[in-house]
């Protein structure tokens, strides 16, 4: 199969996940709850970001057994995270037939210069971004889906909002630029001008654009969808809350009916407590995950 056909199939799976919720899970039991609640996919990992943050140390790809068990119990796509630049972890996940790989800043980066060359893989990749330049560079490397970085494990939506607004606002600016300005813009972002032109033409990223990093309530999901996200990832927000199954279902419904406040009110009743969350300004700068 040609590389371009392969890419279409990779982006194709991302398209199928639109309008859905992808949930972080650490055990087969959680994966089952996620599937039963209507998740479109699960992200298999060893610890949710809130615990990674709390416990410190090096965070790596999840244990093989955990991923295998999760694959066994659910029929929805299973995703897993690798460290930035760690193509060997990615090769292993591909051989295990994981459906999607998240090259993620939530784990400790393995390479401080290079991201994985994602064109080499048959399995699709999602990567995080804080702005349009970062998003387009990851797409140039072969990412089939982009998500905001937000600030994982914070339970605080402010960073995801910032990143989504930066991406969408920048695209709107591109739409008013002439060819010369687009060229200069492409140089500044370090990406091919054709990719920048295509983005301007489409008025959105050329691959599905999802939200992640700090979503904790149905209203958070709705907010991100209204800002331009096409689906949401919920990490610690579900299994760090008081009643994961109820909250998971509520966030799924909020994502489908993100423009309908009546649905949001209905699903937000009797939710139990949300994860506690952190003030971004109180996180020491060297502990921010998004700068990785």
């Amino acid at each position: 199969m040609k590389n371009s056909d392969n890419y279409k199939i990779k982006v194709g799976l991302a398209e199928m996940l639109k309008g859905g919720v992808i949930m972080d899970v650490t055990t087969p039991e959680q994966a089952k709850i996620a599937e039963d609640s209507g998740a479109v996919a699960v992200m298999a990992l060893e610890k949710v970001p809130a615990d990674i943050r709390k416990e410190g140390g090096v965070a790596r790809m999840a244990a093989i057994e955990v991923i295998e068990q999760i694959k066994e119990v659910v029929s929805i796509p299973v995703m897993a995270k690798v460290r930035i630049g760690h193509f060997a972890e990615a090769q292993m996940l591909e051989a295990m037939e994981v459906d999607f790989i998240d090259e993620s800043e939530v784990l400790t980066p393995a390479d401080d210069k290079y991201h994985i060359d994602k064109w080499d893989f048959k399995v699709p990749f999602v990567c995080g971004c804080r702005n349009l330049g970062e998003a387009l560079r990851r797409i140039s490397e072969g990412a089939a889906m982009i998500r905001t970085k937000g600030e994982a494990g914070s339970g605080n939506i402010v960073e995801a909002v910032r990143h989504m607004r930066l991406v969408m606002g920048h695209i709107r600016k591109l739409q008013n630029m002439n060819p010369e300005e687009l060229k200069s813009e492409a140089r500044e972002m370090g990406v091919d001008v054709e990719l920048v032109k295509k983005t301007a033409e489409l008025g959105k990223l050329p691959v599905p654009n999802f939200a992640a990093g700090g979503i904790a309530t149905p209203a958070d999901a709705s907010l991100m969808m209204q800002l331009g996200a096409e689906s949401v990832f919920v990490g610690s927000g579900i299994f760090k809350s008081d009643d994961p199954a109820v909250r998971a279902k509520a966030i799924v419904q909020a994502t489908t009916h993100f423009r309908d406040p009546k649905v949001l009110i209905e699903v937000s009743r009797h939710l139990g407590g949300a994860m506690k969350g952190l003030d971004i300004n109180k996180i020491p700068e060297d502990e921010l995950l998004q700068i990785r």
């Binding site: 199969m1 056909d5 279409k8 199939i9 194709g12 799976l13 796509p77 591909e94 037939e97 994981v98 459906d99 999607f100 048959k122 399995v123 699709p124």
Partner: peptide, 8 residues
Amino acid sequence: GRQVHSFS
């Protein structure tokens, strides 16, 4: 099969 077996 899973995604790696998707094709066109």
